[in-house]
């Protein structure tokens, strides 16, 4: 709320400064109003790193112009005051606008950065609720370590979709992902999906155990699909190290 109030106050001050430029009969009021209006658009359009540069340039340029003008017209110090006020108003306007713009842009950038970080740490993909590839690799590291200690096997299974029809491919993959979730041992084995391939890491099992999981998967799919032949190819190998898994998923371990 404090931030919101600051925003409101900035906005009101900006309005007041702009109103003063328009209403108070200071020298070059029309030109200053034009520059102020133009600056609103320019400062919004340029990249953040140039905004302050622009504001400073405008302020200093106008100051230089007024100084030059005062010299040219031989102004006395008393009659210089309106020119100073005019410059102050433009400066106040530009600086207030710069601060306001900065605040707004900063929130946007912060949100983008958080989104990026969340994407990296995400454990589950949105639609299928399978693990993300990153999370799969991270958890696989723990499983491999445990397997090493206890001298137990882990098996890595790849289920690659092989289906000619482009039309039904997407729904078919969704169906396969849905079914695999209900086939593996919950909170025990790992599953992820990258492109059109599902990857499993089956913990504390052997080749026969891996084959049983695949068989169970075929059974579960029979109630979902009408196809006589399964629309995928299966490859199962013993998981020896993390690099093997990461390479298959196209990630670094």
């Amino acid at each position: 709320m404090g931030d919101n109030l600051k925003l409101g106050v900035l906005l009101l001050l900006l309005l007041a400064a702009g109103w003063a430029i328009l209403v108070i009969p200071l020298p070059f009021a029309r030109e200053v109003a034009f520059v102020a209006g133009l600056s609103v658009l320019v400062m919004a359009a340029v990249h953040e790193r140039y905004v302050f540069l622009y504001a400073m340039s405008a302020i200093l340029s106008y100051g230089a112009f007024l100084t030059f003008y005062a010299f040219l017209t031989g102004r006395q110090s008393v009659s210089e005051l309106p020119y100073i006020y005019s410059h102050l108003l433009l400066t106040a306007f530009l600086l207030l606008y710069w601060v306001l713009l900065n605040k707004i842009k900063h929130i946007g950038y912060e949100k983008d950065e958080l989104k990026r970080q969340i994407g990296l740490l995400q454990k589950y993909t949105g639609h299928s609720e399978l693990l993300t590839a990153n999370e799969f690799i991270e958890q696989a590291a723990w499983i491999m370590k445990a397997g090493e200690r206890k001298k137990e096997q882990a098996w890595f299974v790849e289920i690659s979709l092989e289906h000619e029809s482009r039309r039904t491919r997407d729904s078919l993959m969704a169906s396969l992902e849905r079914t695999i979730k209900n086939t593996i041992r919950q909170k025990y084995d790992l599953v992820t999906s990258v492109n059109d391939t599902i990857y499993l890491l089956l913990k504390d099992t052997d080749e026969a155990g891996a084959a049983r999981v695949v068989e169970r998967y075929h059974e579960n799919l029979r109630t979902e699909l009408n196809l006589l032949e399964p629309p995928f190819r299966v490859a199962a190998v013993q998981a020896m190290d993390l690099g093997q898994l990461a390479a298959a998923l196209g990630r670094s371990s």
Partner: peptide
């Protein structure tokens, strides 16, 4: 095509 693929 969909009916041939999906049982429901």
């Amino acid at each position: 095509e969909f009916a041939e693929t999906f049982s429901r």
